[in-house]
Design a protein around this nucleic acid. Sequence first.
DNA 1: GATTGACTCGTACAGTGTACGATGCGATCT
DNA 2: AGATCGCATCGTACACTGTACGAGTCAATC
Lengths: 232, 232
Amino acid sequence: MAAKPSSARGKQSPRRGASVQPLQEPRGEPPLSLERIVATAVELLDAQGVDGLSMRRLADRLGSGAMSLYWHVDSKEAVFDLALDSVLEYRGPPRAPAPQDWRGEVVHMLEDWRASMLRHPWSASLLPRRALGPNILSRLELLSNALSRAGVAQADLNVAIWSLWNYVMGATITRGSFELSDNDRVAAQQRLADLGERYPTIERSHLLLDDNWDGTFRKGLDFLLEGLAPKQ
Amino acid sequence: MAAKPSSARGKQSPRRGASVQPLQEPRGEPPLSLERIVATAVELLDAQGVDGLSMRRLADRLGSGAMSLYWHVDSKEAVFDLALDSVLEYRGPPRAPAPQDWRGEVVHMLEDWRASMLRHPWSASLLPRRALGPNILSRLELLSNALSRAGVAQADLNVAIWSLWNYVMGATITRGSFELSDNDRVAAQQRLADLGERYPTIERSHLLLDDNWDGTFRKGLDFLLEGLAPKQ
DNA sequence: GATTGACTCGTACAGTGTACGATGCGATCT
DNA sequence: AGATCGCATCGTACACTGTACGAGTCAATC
């Protein structure tokens, strides 16, 4: 009768080979562990996308049986949660920032956030309705802290945090929606031209053709920060 | 050999009962049609969420066989696309806006957008990576048009549009992430308190407890608009 | 009367998440 | 020494998924 560890995962264990030699598993896979499961899930997601991740495929890659995963993990949903959070670790700016440069700090963190998610395109579609992992919380903490130092009034603090958070989330999932479809975008613009009368303004502005996503993201962020904490 | 209509759907047809009487299907379901399929899909999504929609269940509700749907629809993905766009129709403000009140127009449309999506909580998680339907394009057009009239420089127009779009998208999916979990939010705050040292600032600001989502959304929107097109 | 095309649907297949219970293993206790 | 116990692995089974394929129905047309 194994106890189901449910949300308390299996801790690391000596298990085998702790004596002198691995006995006789020279090329056997290392034992399962949460870390290995999550890392492999990220690999698989990177390679095959959200639909490519199945418990059986994941187990195959790990050299184990599908049901073995459930010792370490509650469900497939939990694998998604863990994979998402693991991809969002933040290491901070390259060198310690000047304490008064809150703006640079915020911009760096948010650009890194966006870059992390774009590096793993599946993450954007996972974000809605996922749990708050520790790495996500850390980023919120940094944001909160920097904005406090920036002199944002306490009453406006939460508004400011959510505004920035929302902006970055939205920018990331939007970019995700359009990234794949270079040809499609041209096609869409064409379709727009055909229906010219219904969408004249966005047709004229080439909204769907503009692919300077990074610049657009950065500029919009500046506008928003300007609204939240005017430079002087 | 029926021709696969693929993306060209079956048009409306007289089919049956066009003569004088419905012959003898007094309580039979009306015939399948794209509209009926999409409307029923929305019902089902509202009732059971994203995971609750399966082609078989959808067909059951329609009183037809599962495979019959595929005459009208390419795939389940297409059903998602159509359901999403159908929920995003915009009827405009209650009365015709004064032409110079671009700000009111934008705010109304964006609040309506957000409200529409919150009325159908599944929509937020569908948004990433979905196609641009006509209703979505209409909203972009309105945004684009209003901002032009607001005097936003042509060079900044796309940035402005995307910024607002991003903000609303993000706000919507974020709200979606937290809405269900009132108890969870308290639990999260508790967990935060336990780990007090790691997240002091967000713990102090009660970021996760604040549930004035509508007000926060509106205030953040004002900040952003202020950044994009200062009042004078 | 034959043909066509629009439309419906039963069957089948490969794949899914995971409940359940059997099994093995190292460490601990008697 | 044997018995016991907890961790960990995994084969089998079940209910369910999306959809390919091809047979079927029925009204309109030739």
